[in-house]
Simulated assay, not measured.
Amino acid sequence: MYPLASEASSIGSPVLWLVTIVVLLALLALDFVITRRPHEVGMREAVGWSVFYLVLPVLFGLYVWLAHGTQPSVEFATGWVLEKSLSVDNLFVFMLLLSAFAVPEELRQRVLLYGIVGALVLRAVFIALGAAILQAGAWAFLVFGLVLLATAVKIFRDALRGDQHQPDINQMRSVRLLRRLMPVTEDFRGPRMTVLSGGRRALTPFALVVVAVLVTDVVFAVDSVPAAYGVTSDPYLVFATNAFALLGLRALYFVLQHALSRLRHLNHGLALILAFIGVKLGMTWAHRTWPSVPEIPTVLSLGVVVVTLVVVTLTSMRANRRERALR
């Protein structure tokens, strides 16, 4: 049974929060150092960092299990798998934006890093807001559940229509607004966002793509934070699952940039997962209102998320083989 945020016993002591934030800032600073010199990322480098950022949550989950018990560790594992799957979809949108803006290969990792930092900041804000809403009463679970169900319906409709098309950057509201406010250079000037052009300060295409990525971060934060609260009501675990899911996306992009487009059924799976978590939140609200209504255990949630991701990966691979056979 989920307690309200005001009643919940969080594992996040002040010391643990401080250590987590310091480690997170150190890792982000390391990423900024790595991306300071623009260069194309090779597969060996990308795989190495991806493995590193996959090992970190495993070690953290082991710590949670040893220090705080089975339930928090299962909640963390479930939340991390859920948020990682959502972040991969986030990564696919980043891939479309980088392609649409024709970002040079050597600058892509810096754009991705800005996107990850923006996502972390936005999700921290939404996590705090979510905790405050949960303190207001059990009805918050119902609201979060309805948000996820609405999102699931939209994602599923878009998946059926095949709406993962190349975005038209000239029609993006953020890009049009920036172009009205300041002139924009025709070409990239490295990782610089503004330059002096003709005696006037002008934006570069690099600034436009960073803003476009940050705008998509807002959309994904609206979905991911309620989804995490559908797994655990502990704000610290919600933050940890989001942080570990987002860390390493820069390197993972270069590992998966060719495979992402082949996961044609990923959005179908994400829609099912979000719908399931939405129903889970609705049942949590119902259980608090009518105790005879059962709750969905976290272990079952973990199983549903993992099985769904495995199934959509296999069906995507099968569909790709069938398509190649028909050529």
Rank of each mutant, 00 (worst) to 15 (best):
V255C: 14
V255D: 01
V255G: 04
L256Q: 03
L256V: 05
H258P: 00
L260F: 05
L260K: 05
L260Q: 04
R262E: 09
L263K: 00
L263S: 04
H265C: 08
L266K: 09
N267V: 05
N267W: 04
H268N: 12
H268D: 12
G269Y: 01
G269H: 02
L272D: 02
L274I: 14
A275M: 14
A275I: 13
I277C: 08
I277D: 07
G278T: 04
V279W: 03
V279N: 10
K280L: 06
L281E: 07
G282H: 03
G282Q: 01
A286V: 00
A286F: 00
H287Q: 09
R288S: 13
T289R: 14
W290Q: 15
P294V: 03
P294G: 03
P294W: 03
E295C: 13
I296T: 14
P297I: 14
T298W: 03
V299A: 13
L302H: 04
G303M: 10
V305Q: 07
V305N: 05
V305T: 14
V306L: 11
V306E: 03
V306G: 00
V307T: 09
V307N: 08
T308E: 03
T308M: 09
L309G: 06
V310K: 01
V311D: 09
V312D: 10
L314E: 15
L314W: 12
R318H: 12
A319P: 05
N320I: 13
N320A: 15
R321C: 10
R321I: 02
R322W: 14
R322S: 15
